[in-house]
Simulated assay, not measured.
Amino acid sequence: MLWSSFIAFALFAPSHALIRFGCSQLVVDRLDPLVNPGLAPSPHLHQIIGGNSFNTSMLPENHDPPTLSTCTTCQPSDDFSNYWTAALYFRAKNGTFKRVPQKGNSGFEGSNGGMTVYYMQNQLADYAQKAKVTAFKPGFRMLIGNPMANTKADANKYPQLTYTCLQDMGTRYPETKNFPTKPCPAGIMTNVRFPTCWDGKNLDSPDHISHMSYPASGNFESQGPCPSTHPVRMPQLMYEVIFETKAFNNKEDWPTDGSQPFVWSFGDGTGYGSHGDYVFGWKDDSLQKIMDEACYVNCKSMKTQTMAAMNACAVKNRVNEDIGDRDWIPEIPGAPALHLKAADGTV
C-alpha cells in the first residue's frame, strides 16, 4: 500500500485513535541504558530520539523522563520517552566503514534524522481503530529483537521486525527479514513493531522482553487474542527508520560476490539482528487520553511542537570517538566481530 493512498483514505475515514509523528535525532552515541546501564561506552552504537534526560544510566527508581527532561525531539510536546535503534554502516571494498545517515519520513522532511513513531489500537490499514488499549505506565520499558540473531530462524522469533527497500518515499511493500540485496533508490527503511500483550504486573523484566508477549494466536494485525499470561492489550508501538543510502547506491561499490554491503553497528551483515529499545516517558496520562480519543493521526488531545523546536533539542555525546560521519573509518566503533553473509547465502 502506498503512503499517499493511506493519507488520502485517512482524510475521509472514520476517526479513531492512531497517532503517527516524527522525531528528530537526539544523539548518536555508544550508550544503552536499558541493556548496559552505567556502561560508557556500551558495546555498539545507537541513534536515540526523544527526551533530553537520556543518559548513561536510567534506572527506573531514579529516572522519570517527564520530570527530568527539558525538551524532546518528538513532535508531541508531552512525549519525553526515549526510542533507539542501532546505527547502520556501509562497508567499502577496502574494508573501511562509513555511517549511513537517517532522514525524515514523508511529512517530516525537515527533521534532523530521527525516525517516525506510531501508536495504534489496530493495524495501520484498519481505519476504524476501535480496539480498547491500555497505555504504557510510568517506569515501563522494553526491547524487541536480538542483536545476536544471524539466521532467518533466529529472526523469525520476532516476526514484526522487517526491512523495506524504498523505490520512492511511498513504498511500503514488500517487507523482508534480511537486508535488501539490491540498491534502494529512496533508502532502506527498517520497521520495528513491538509486542502488544502485557502481563499487567511488571514494568520491565530481566531480558526486557518477557513481560510482553505476541498474541496467543494470529497476530496484532488479525486481532489475535492476548494469552492468559499476558492479558492486557497495549498499543502497537512501531518505528520506521529510514537510512539515506543515496551515497552508497552505486553498484560498482558493492561486493563482487553478490553479497550486500550494509552492516549494523553490532557487526550483523545479514539484517537478522535488527532490534529496538523503548523507555516510556509520556507526561501524566497524556498517552491514554490520546488512545481514548476518536482521532486518526491528528488528535486534538495531542499537544505538538514545531519542527524547529524538535531539531533544537539535543544532548552532547558521552563517548568521544569517531563514528564515521565524515571520513571512512577502519573499523566500526567497538570493533564487533562481523557476521557477513557469503555469496551462497550462508552465514
Rank of each mutant, 00 (worst) to 15 (best):
N105R: 09
T116K: 04
S106T: 13
Y119H: 14
R99S: 12
Y127W: 05
A128I: 06
G113V: 08
S106E: 09
A128T: 12
M115E: 10
F97Y: 15
K103F: 08
T116N: 09
Q102F: 06
M120R: 11
Q102C: 11
R99F: 03
Q123L: 00
M120A: 13
K98I: 13
Q123A: 11
M115P: 10
N112A: 10
E109S: 14
Y119W: 12
F108S: 10
M120E: 13
K98H: 12
G114P: 10
M115G: 07
M115W: 00
Q102E: 15
S111C: 06
S106C: 03
M115D: 07
T96S: 15
Q121N: 15
S111V: 11
V100D: 06
Y119E: 05
P101H: 01
N112E: 10
M115V: 03
A125E: 12
M120G: 09
T96Q: 14
F108L: 01
G107F: 01
L124K: 08
A125T: 13
Q121L: 06
A125V: 10
G113R: 05
Q121M: 05
Y119R: 04
S106I: 13
Y118T: 01
K103L: 10
D126Y: 00
K103P: 10
K103W: 05
Y127C: 02
D126N: 15
S111G: 10
G114S: 08
T96I: 04
F108K: 00
N122W: 00
V100H: 05
V100T: 07
E109A: 13
V117N: 04
Y119D: 05
V117R: 02
Y127F: 15
N105C: 03
G113L: 05
D126P: 05
T96P: 10
G104K: 06
T96Y: 09
V117F: 03
Q102A: 12
Q102N: 14
A125K: 01
K98F: 05
G104Q: 05
R99N: 11
G107R: 02
N105H: 14
F97P: 09
N112G: 04
Y118I: 03
Y119K: 03
Y118L: 09
G110F: 04
G113D: 07
S106K: 12
V100L: 07
Y127M: 14
E109P: 01
Y118P: 03
S106A: 13
R99H: 03
N122M: 04
Y127H: 08
F108T: 06
N122Y: 00
G110M: 03
G110L: 03
E109Y: 07
R99M: 15
M120N: 10
K103M: 14
G113A: 07
M120H: 01
Q102K: 09
T116C: 04
A125D: 14
N122Q: 13
Q123M: 00
N112L: 12
Y127L: 12
A125R: 00
Q123C: 07
D126W: 00
Y118H: 14
M115Q: 14
N122H: 04
Y127I: 08
Q123W: 02
F108Y: 15
G114M: 05
T116A: 10
N105F: 12
A128M: 04
G113T: 07
S106R: 09
Q121E: 10
R99Y: 02
N105W: 11
S111N: 14
R99I: 13
T96G: 08
F108G: 05
M120I: 01
T96E: 14
N122P: 01
N122V: 01
F108D: 13
Y127V: 09
G110W: 02
S111R: 09
N112W: 01
S106D: 09
